[in-house]
Structure formats: C-alpha cells, structure tokens
Amino acid sequence: MRILVANIGSTSFKFQLFDIASKRSLAQGRVERIGQPGGDCPDYETAIDRCLATLVGPRKPLADLSELSAIGFKAVHAGPGPGLRFVDDELFSDMERFCFLAPAHNPPYIRAMRAFRDRHPKIPLVALFETAFFSMAEESRTYAVPFAWKEELGIQRYGFHGASHRYAAERAATLLGRTDLRQVSCHLGGSSSLAAIKDGAGIDSSFGMSPQSGLPHNNRVGEIDAFAVLYAMKQLGIGIDEMASILARESGLAGISGVGGDLRDLEAAGGNQRAKLALDVFVYWIRHYLGAFMLQLGGLDVLSFSGGIGENRAAIRRRVCTGLESFGLVVDPRLNRKISGELDIAALESKVRVLVIPANEEWIVARHAAELISSNTPGGGADETPRAPRGI
C-alpha cells in the first residue's frame, strides 16, 4: 500500500510518499510560495499537479496513479468529533466551524483538500487530526465556564501536535524496550507543546482549545489570562477579529522580543534584554508544564525532545533540565552538545532517560491512513459507517 502524506501551510505544500509494508519513504518534496507575489505556483491545483508529476510515471515511485491507495493529511482542528476521518463534506463543515480557532491551519487545509478531491475524486482522502492522540480525563479537558458552552459549542481543551507526540511515545517504548512508561514529550519548534504520556497514551497537553494556547510560540501568544485580553480590547478599542490577529500573528516570542520569534535570532541577539526575556519566558513555561505533568504522572521515566528547537538547540535542553537531579534526571553535558539524530543524552547515573527523537509526523499520518483504508475495504457494505482503528 502506498500513501501520500500532504503537510499544508498557508503558502506551502510539503509531501512525502510512503510504502506501508516496508515502512519506507519513497519520495518527498515541497512547493513553496503558493499564490504569492514573485512565486510561480498560482494555486493548490497547480501544486498538486507538480507533486504528482514528480511521483508518477516511468522510473518514478508510482508507475500509475492507481497505485496510490490514499492521501493523508496532518489536519489540525475539527472539534470534538473523531480524530481520524475520511475527507467529506461533513468534515469540511466541521473544520470551517473551527477556522476562527486555527486561522493559520484550517483554511489552507480545506483549500488543499478540496483541490485534491476535485482533481482526483477517486483517490480516498484521510485526515488525521492533531487532537487524535489525546484521551484526557474530563477534569483535565473541562474549562470552568458555563457547562452549556462545552455541550453546545465544543469549548474544552483538546491538545495538538498529536502525531509528533505519538511518534515520540512509540520510539521511546521501542528504544527502552517497555510500554509502561511515564513520559513527558516536548515538541519544540515554531509552534511548541508538551504532552503527558502514560503507557503510550496522551493524557494531557499544554495546549488548550486552540493552537494559540499553552507555551509561547514563535508569533502566537500561548498562556494568557482571558481578562487581560478583554481589558486590552476595552482600553485600546480593539475588536474581536483584530485582537485574534494580534494574538495569532504578533505575539509569542516575537511579541516579547521585538526582533522576531526564531530561537536562532533570539540567541544571536546578544545583549538585547527583550530577546533574553523571551528566551527566559519560553524556558519558564516549558518547566512549568514539565513539573505539572510529572506530578500528574506520579513520576517520570522519560523526557523526550522533538521538533526543530527540541532536536537542535542544546542550550534550551540544558536549561530545561537544569536542577532536576533531585527528581532523578541528569543530562550528560557532552552528549547534549554533540548530539546528531536520535540519542539518549541522560548521564549513566540518571534514573530518567532523556531522549532526543527527530519528529516523524508524516509516518504516523501515513500509517493511520492505511489502517483506516484497510478497515473499510470494499465488500463491507455500501452503507457501512467508516470505522477508525482502535485508540483513535
């Protein structure tokens, strides 16, 4: 079975083709500056054609398009429904309802999914939502607001980055040879989050209802008192949509520093006190959630780092882990500095293993798409309701 995974950005399209049986990536590529001035790709339809042109034909991974079993999408938010779904009109409706909460993600995914469906209507499309990994207890999921909001509007905590955290959990279990692990997974990048994982299941997340919550992100706000936002709106005369744009595009590390939200720029800013403060705030909130999740898990067996920052910024890993010796966590400074790829950077005497695990979200999407396709093969009955694999 061959699965194409589409990772959609607001102006970009990354893709990767997998052979499920061999667990191999057969090809990958990207199309940039879609619909942007100076770019040469006017729309997603053109991007799709270019993607498939690199994959299908003589001496290419697919001899014919019929060899493609499905296209999987690492989608973000469709509310409280199933986390793994076939792409259809009902899914579009659910995603559109939550566009306000995921303005950087849902609109481009909807456009790309529609373009794929219109271009190639016979190829099954599957969405694995970033919320799918989390099975929070009701006391963790529920906000202290009128309960009707939860029932009628879906206002609750969801958690995101599920594919990355799931992969980190699976790799930790494989590397350590056990599944009964208490793990905190740190996905740190342009968008960042922590997940509490018990026995391979995501039981909590630093994210709340939207991808703007939790840790401070590159340019998205993270944790903030709701009344601070209302106060600023009242004092500055800012409307809902303008404030939403500020929180989603002009806040986070960029908002604090004034020099941008990229960690490399912040670390290179030298004596810039606001850049230093942005880094300090970032580390503070990582440690805040790490401590909370350690308590929730009743201890810690594994701390893992993934994402562009988690995998590549030794200074951030060092600062996060400093002073945790009394909790049985000791990092080997040499391994932390020298790491390239996947490695346990904990010192020999550390009771907690500290793993750097390069993210592989696309494989998780491909595998789950294949499972959904396999569980709904022809012959199950024309009116049979599509089923998601267990645990989704």
Rank of each mutant, 00 (worst) to 15 (best):
N106Y: 09
P386F: 03
N219V: 09
S10Q: 00
S66R: 15
F134P: 04
P124H: 08
E67C: 13
M294V: 09
A268H: 06
S213V: 00
G391P: 01
A369P: 08
G391M: 03
I155K: 01
Q212E: 06
R24F: 00
G328V: 09
L279V: 14
F147E: 14
G237I: 00
S306D: 11
L17N: 01
R264P: 02
F92R: 05
A226N: 05
A148S: 10
L4S: 02
Q296T: 10
I357N: 06
L297R: 05
L65K: 04
E139C: 12
E130T: 01
E130F: 06
I34A: 14
L68K: 06
A388W: 05
L343I: 11
G190T: 03
S164C: 10
V126T: 07
D265R: 11
A226D: 01
A144H: 11
E96L: 11
L290Q: 08
T385H: 02
G39R: 06
L295Y: 06
P61L: 08
G299H: 05
A346G: 11
I256V: 15
N376R: 08
A102R: 02
E325A: 15
F160R: 02
L91R: 06
C186Y: 10
L65W: 04
S164G: 11
P146D: 08
P121N: 07
P58L: 09
E139I: 05
V283M: 09
A269G: 08
G252Y: 08
P389H: 02
I34K: 04
A347S: 14
D280A: 15
G190H: 13
A132I: 03
K338F: 02
A195N: 07
F116H: 07
K14Y: 00
L101Y: 14
F227E: 01
A173P: 03
C41R: 08
G81K: 10
G200M: 03
D89G: 01
S69V: 04
S135N: 09
E267Y: 15
G299T: 06
G380V: 13
G307D: 10
I256F: 10
L247A: 10
A137P: 00
P61N: 06
Y231C: 02
L263A: 03
F18E: 00
F293C: 02
N376T: 06
S191Q: 15
G9F: 00
V330D: 00
A226W: 06
P108Q: 07
G159P: 01
P37K: 10
M294Q: 09
I246K: 14
L125W: 14
F129I: 04
G38Q: 04
R97H: 12
V87E: 05
E371V: 00
S12K: 00
A70V: 09
F92H: 02
N376H: 12
